[in-house]
Design a binder for these strands. Structure first.
Lengths: 235, 235
DNA sequence: AGCCGCGATATGTTATCACAGTTCCAGTCC
DNA sequence: GGACTGGAACTGTGATAACATATCGCGGCT
């Protein structure tokens, strides 16, 4: 067999050697688990259990947990055991304040330099979000994913990688409680207003109106946060 | 011997068993090394070398490096080797923008609730800073330490732990270049203006004038940043 | 019956080893 | 003489085992 030219073959078709370490994979798995709210605040994780569940040894799990703990996505107790952090009301409000500053700045910056292509992608995401919502029984997981893609699509347009990193960390911290509540409570109301805010945000971006974009985002964050706070499940 | 009451003895005098893991110690050592600018951007670190230098095995070093990398204090190249991140001008300016938002908010918040005790500690720190500066040959390491204690003394007064954590991460990222430059270049000028800004900041805090405190801090951050940028050592 | 001490179990930590990918240098061939 | 190839040394990753500590339960003592 020749090295190139064979239909569908060739060197380019070689399996990319999995250049991802197991530690990275475990990290990604755990991270999405946390972000999707599939672990509840207070849950304790043990290295051996996770290693067994994932079919690896303790080492990659250890790596992943260390990383997540450094990002405050997990918490190491004085006993050295790790658990999903419990979110207090004060902490939630503090994170919300920081989000308003950071994500507000991101959207305001993005409004000035967003490309038409990025805008088109965002509109598509918004339509997808609307469609899923208009379903008789919206899938919470899908809504959460689309919402996240929509927000971060904007933040990425700001072209501030360090800022983006910090915002991701904040979302990781509030992920469990956010999704946990959205999943269980009646969500019609909060989603309706989310749709409106997203629409306003999109309009402002289209007009390249930074302050308006920031205001729309603030409305989104504040209203969603108020909803969570009213749920009363925060200690 | 009785368990209590012996002069200077008693249970309370027992050595606290060192509840710190080796990984935590290595992490702290490396962290201070980075913050103090004793490693230069671009320097590559190897696990085995560090382990040998610190007299431990590879494991604790691995832990520490994983953690530092998660905090962006170290950088893992696609080759899997880790190095002290090289700071580009764009990245430096981005971090400065974020610092202005976050640290600005922290001092403004602190101004409203700072206690007299905390204020006294800050004044003492400022006097120490002034004294060290008035020395014929100020010690860069001491100045850096005092400056850090002064800033974080204020940030802690804001009582926003999550915010504090993020700010620490930002300082960790800019630590190498910051100190590296302050150490080598003529620093009289920049320190003089730092003294003035710190004084203004202290005055504003004493008056509980949040906006003025934020303005003074902004002056400090911007002037120091301009100094670094003018040095031209950033790529 | 309640509290204390002891031991069994579970869990995080560290060390050591084996392996794979990378880097670098020397030797060799064109 | 220069580019390529070969291997040796190096380095991060994953696995396993030994160890220290924390947690929990059981039995005996008060």
């Amino acid at each position: 067999m020749g090295l190139g030219g064979v239909s569908g073959g060739g060197i380019g078709a070689l399996d990319k050697v999995d250049r991802e370490t197991m530690g990275a994979r475990v990290y990604r798995d755990l991270r999405s688990l946390i972000m999707a709210g599939q672990v509840s605040p207070g849950d304790r994780l043990t290295i051996r259990t996770l290693a067994a569940a994932l079919g690896t040894s303790m080492m990659p799990v250890r790596d992943a947990i260390t990383r997540l703990a450094a990002e405050q996505a997990l918490e190491v107790l004085p006993n050295r055991t790790v658990r999903v952090p419990i979110m207090t009301r004060a902490r939630f409000e503090e994170v919300r304040t920081i989000r308003l500053m950071l994500e507000g700045h991101a959207v305001e910056t993005a409004a000035g330099i967003v490309t038409p292509e990025a805008l088109a992608r965002l509109r598509a995401l918004h339509e997808e979000f609307t469609a899923e919502h208009n379903t008789g029984d919206p899938d919470p997981a899908a809504l959460i994913r689309i919402n996240k893609d929509f927000h971060f699509g904007i933040y990425e347009a700001a072209a501030m990688p360090a800022l983006l990193q910090i915002i991701e960390g904040l979302w990781l911290q509030i992920g469990p409680v956010l999704n946990f509540d959205l999943r269980s409570k009646s969500k019609r109301l909060s989603e309706r207003v989310a749709l409106r805010h997203h629409g306003d945000l999109l309009d402002a971006l289209g007009r390249r109106d930074g302050p308006a974009a920031r205001a729309a985002l603030a409305g989104d964050i504040v209203s969603a946060g108020d909803f969570i706070l009213r749920c009363g499940s925060l200690v």
